[in-house]
């Protein structure tokens, strides 16, 4: 029987399961289920933002806010590049594809670190775009 402990997840800190779910949804939103995963994440954030244990609250907040920022960085900025450069201009595609790949990969890598921190029962703030930590787990 495989348990969460087998993969390095500790259940020592209250709210750890929710924290892991938040970061997993953040990654799912970027990788497999864009929109749907964010909707579930937003639902969790609004449901638990006041009464979840500090660790869960912190990860939910980080994942939710950074997903919004991610949306801006990926969708809005990409659309901006497309509009500014023009659909039929070769340099638009060079810049757009490089930008999209880099920003998307960066968010995924940061999401992985966030997930690892949640699995370790530790707090985490996404660099630059993550909201300030207001509570210590």
């Amino acid at each position: 029987m495989i348990s969460e402990e087998d993969f390095g997840v500790r259940e020592e800190i209250p709210g750890q399961g929710l924290a892991i779910a938040a970061e997993a949804l953040f990654l799912l939103n970027l990788l497999a289920l864009p929109g749907l995963a964010f909707a579930i994440l937003a639902g969790l954030w609004f449901r638990f933002r006041h009464d979840a244990p500090p660790l869960a609250r912190q990860h939910l907040r980080q994942a939710f806010v950074v997903s919004l920022w991610g949306g801006v960085l990926i969708v809005v900025c990409s659309a901006g590049i497309l509009l500014a450069g023009g659909l039929h201009e070769q340099w638009t595609w060079v810049v757009l594809i490089l930008y999209f790949t880099c920003i998307h990969s960066t968010l995924i890598l940061l999401g992985m670190v966030a997930l690892v921190k949640a699995m370790g029962g530790q707090g985490w703030r996404f660099p630059v775009i993550g909201p300030k930590l207001d509570c210590q787990p």
Binding site: F7, G8, L31, I108, L109, M112, V113, L115, V116, K117, M119, G120, Q122
Partner: peptide, 14 residues
């Protein structure tokens, strides 16, 4: 490869 990265960071974190 995703699993490998999470694995490596997770082990170092723990």
């Amino acid at each position: 490869f995703f699993a490998m990265t999470v694995f490596a960071f997770n082990m170092v974190n723990r």
